[in-house]
């Protein structure tokens, strides 16, 4: 029987949660014995190739591309897990949520005190994904099955969650492993 597949992605996140996943240290050897990685920044596979058992989502949705990637994961993963505070509640990118989008763009590209932009250009290349009006936690866009909060969730938290789900156990984190910081 083929091994269950795990896909991961970083949407509006900082890759800190992926760093925390790598922080499981030598346990990663037993992880790759039990699973195959599909689409992930770790192996640089660009799209999900076949049905996955688990999708790990880092980061919330701040632009249209994030939403498309999240839809791809929801469509192709049996279990979708919001990993980290950004996926769970928007996190640091969501600090812009009570500032109008145009004000954010103006501050970043036109009026900020350290900005040098003599031609007064703001990014509008079609290659650049359009920003959403605000940053959305993943569960406000698609159905999410489990949440692992934390900034980032510790390697032990990720390990406990992955091993529980891969052995068909319910995901119940002990007290020390549920943290929001």
């Amino acid at each position: 029987m083929s091994k269950p597949r795990v896909a991961t992605t970083s949407l509006a996140g900082c890759f800190g949660c992926h760093m925390s996943l790598l922080d499981i240290d030598e346990r990663i050897l037993s992880l790759i014995e039990r699973v195959d990685f599909d689409r992930s920044p770790i192996d640089d596979i660009k799209h999900i190739s076949q049905r996955c058992a688990i999708g790990l989502i880092e980061g919330g949705c701040c632009n249209e591309e994030n939403v498309r990637v999240l839809y791809e994961f929801r469509k192709n993963c049996d279990l979708l897990i919001s990993v980290g505070d950004c996926a769970t509640m928007g996190g640091i990118p969501a600090l812009r949520n009570n500032i109008p989008l145009q004000e954010c763009i103006d501050e970043a590209y036109r009026t900020g005190v350290t900005v040098y932009n003599p031609d007064d250009i703001t990014p509008q290349d079609p290659e650049i994904p359009l920003l959403l009006n605000r940053v959305y936690p993943c569960h406000e866009v698609v159905k999410i099955d489990y949440f692992l909060p934390g900034c980032p969730p510790s390697a032990d938290t990720l390990w406990a969650a992955l091993t529980a789900l891969l052995s068909g156990q319910p995901l119940e984190l002990p007290y020390e492993l549920l943290k929001y910081d």
Partner: peptide, 21 residues
């Protein structure tokens, strides 16, 4: 936060308001 930990809350069930404060 401690109360949420005690109750095992991993994510709120309501939509975030992001009010201006």
């Amino acid at each position: 936060q401690a109360m949420a930990y005690r109750f095992g809350i991993t994510a709120p069930q309501y939509p975030f308001q992001f009010p201006e404060k």
